[in-house]
Design a protein around this nucleic acid. Sequence first.
RNA 1: GCCGGAGUGGCGGAACGGUAGACGCGGGGGACUUAAAAUCCCUUGGCCCGGCAGGGCCGUGCAGGUUCGAGUCCUGCCUCCGGCACCA
Length: 829
Amino acid sequence: MTRYDPAEIEPRWQQRWHAADLFRCETEGAGEPFYCLEMLPYPSGRLHMGHVRNYTIGDAVARYQRMRGRRVMHVMGWDAFGLPAENAAIQHGTHPRRWTEENIEAMRRQARRLGWGYDWSREISTCEADYYRWNQWFFLRMLERGLVYRARRPVNWCPSCATVLANEQVHGGRCWRCGEAVTERDLDQWFVRIRDYADELLQGLEALEGWPERVRRMQAHWIGRSEGAAVGFPAEGLERPIEVFTTRLDTIYGATYLALAPDHPDLEALVAGSPQAGAVRSFVARQRGRTLVDRFSAVGEKEGVFTGRYARNPFTGERIPIWVADFVLAEVGTGAVMSVPAHDQRDFEFARKYGLPLRCVVRAPDGLPLTADRLEAAYTEDGVLHDSGPYTGLSSAQARERMLADVQARGWGGRRVVYRLRDWGISRQRYWGTPIPVIHCELCGPVPVPEEELPVRLPEQAPLTGEGGSPLARLPEFVRAACPRCGTSAQRDTDTMDTFVDSSWYFFRYLDPHNARAPFDTTRVRPWLPVDLYIGGIEHATMHLIYTRFWTKMMRDLGLVAIDEPVRRLFTQGMVIKDGAKMSKSRGNIVDPDAMVARYGADTTRLFSLFAAPPEKDLEWSEAGVEGCWRFLQRVWRAFDEARAHLGPPNAPRPAGVDRGAALELRRVAHRTIARVTEDLLPERLQLNTAVAAIMELTNAIVPLSRAERLDSAEAWALREAFEILARLLAPFAPHLAEQLWEGLGHPPFVSAAAWPEAEAELLVRESVTIVVQVNGRLRGRVELPRGASEAEALEAARAEPRVSAYLDGRRIERVVYVPDRLLNLVVR
RNA sequence: GCCGGAGUGGCGGAACGGUAGACGCGGGGGACUUAAAAUCCCUUGGCCCGGCAGGGCCGUGCAGGUUCGAGUCCUGCCUCCGGCACCA
């Protein structure tokens, strides 16, 4: 008997797949395209189990679709720019490129060892000029269209990473990458007008039926559309009125003060010369030093300072004080609010603390007007207006409409929609990224680098300190440039692009990876898009997955693609957990994929990562579970070894007698397994854990026959058929062992290229079925009947069952519920 | 606070509104072995009646409801996880 030795089997098949170029995919050709995509990895060093899970799911789907006859695009690439490379370089005195390339090399080797089938001829690495030049090209296209602009603005700053972060990259006030508390800084930055697409990004979510509801909700919330009105409050000492945004225009008669954000642009002009100026300035200075984390944790303890200035409520003509308050955020709405303490909880708390007046103007529809002195909390519901001049008596909704019409008629302001989504700041003050193709000229301002001069190459050497400031700025030979417009000496932009730019369009490039004239050829990519299935972690719900949707729409508007959305079906797989926590180096609960492969082989590793939990849920790592998968594969191996003696030649004619007895039973199980596994592998289902379970059941049905002393010709034939089915069903999950079985069965290679088995319909239905008999909904017996038996026949059979008849004895059957071939429920009294 | 998701054996998890617990792990018993490992076979939700054969009751977070029938649908709670969070 031969031993199951993955260390011997697996490299051999990997070699043969490679030699046969089995996974190459032509852009054009026969077969319906299927684009199976997984989020490309950051080459951090080694694969971790999260990668293994992600890519094994994708590989199983890709292999399955290939066997179904689809032309499958399945590619691997590297999100190769980014900060860890730079930090590692600083720490270990190496170069980011070298560090990155070594990691890619190691991870590519690991990918092969796990048996993942990619078209390596399409591999891309985003740190290559061939790739990032097109980031620059897109930047210039967006600049032409005004989709990129430069602005000085308070931006999120991660002190540890020494760079700016986009809003999406700040999670709970902390850096998404390193967890450091984020502060604010004023910097000149390039921004992408993703906000211009806010409405479309929001609307588009409804059509994304193939996306998890969870992700759609998260994005909708992230975009955060709110509808209301912008109203100008004339302020003493300012030429232009202070514009406030409100969704509760109906409460405007209750506004008793204005509150401005500490970094409101008009604040300095407002307070200049006021006796309060000093107090305001020191308050503002204190606020600026606070981190976001600090600000979040202080929710509820609002602070503010009176500016010494007043504004006029356009509706009432009333003079109300202007305050600066920390709970008003510059980036929300207009950065200024009309405060209505009686009807807004925040305004209420602030007014209480500083003794500002309250005025009630809305009451519950069935209630009495509240009075300010009795209020314990703001009344924030809609209701009926009182003490609101001509609007008194209107409902909140009516009032909002009328008031808005009057605001517009009198030129005070108008309807306004604001989004929580902010423009995407893409400038990064680090080295290892795409240089921004702009030259700053003292005379002409920022001038785009002419297209024919692309790529602006990232200099191979730059002084890296990690202490802040763009490393490229310290390279005079990089910085110095002639202004493309006027020719005078000017300076290159020394920031690099956010690496989320790289990952926004890489899967378009996979489809045309060597194109030197354009990011990709429009006609080539068309048949492949949108991506049929995209697999990755949930953590990108409001980062990468928003950016790439935006990028697709932007490319559509440039005429490059004809789609509105990049991804038809999104699958978010769960995390890999060990001892109740996400695997991480700092926790020391890492399981190394290499060690797994060395010990159990790739097939066991793959199988476990698919079997141990439904793919969308978190997977708890269990050594015992791995052992179980290992045992299963051994069992398959041994069963096949034992069966050899029984098996006839391939393609033998079907002998008489396969339609009864053990042969029939085995055939039924085998064909039912085809149906189950096929269904579980559908992109909209993807229940790979139950698919594996079904294959285990098939194996359990095979074992007794393969081990039998002697089989008749029908049983032997059925046994061969079962193994041929097993080999092909196993191919997406444990492809090496599957190849070995296929070869052992006398077939030419490769099972990976064989046709997926078809279930014979007549084997899926039985001529006799077990019907469950219930009395009053409780299980009391089972009867065997021919399929399609009538209710009367079922009833007769049920009455003949002693267990059933005991419950019917002396009672009247009031109702019979009959589900043909399944169940009979007798309702008695 | 708002928005999602999830609660099923000792564990991971299965179950078109129709036999709850597939498959795997773990446990118990047995075979093989001098012994162990490996492997194989039987068994395994709880309680109760029975010598066995067999049978009964309870059971999918809690409380109700709809239904002939609810893990699954509805209402209200509880707990845990995730996202957002002073959004004007």
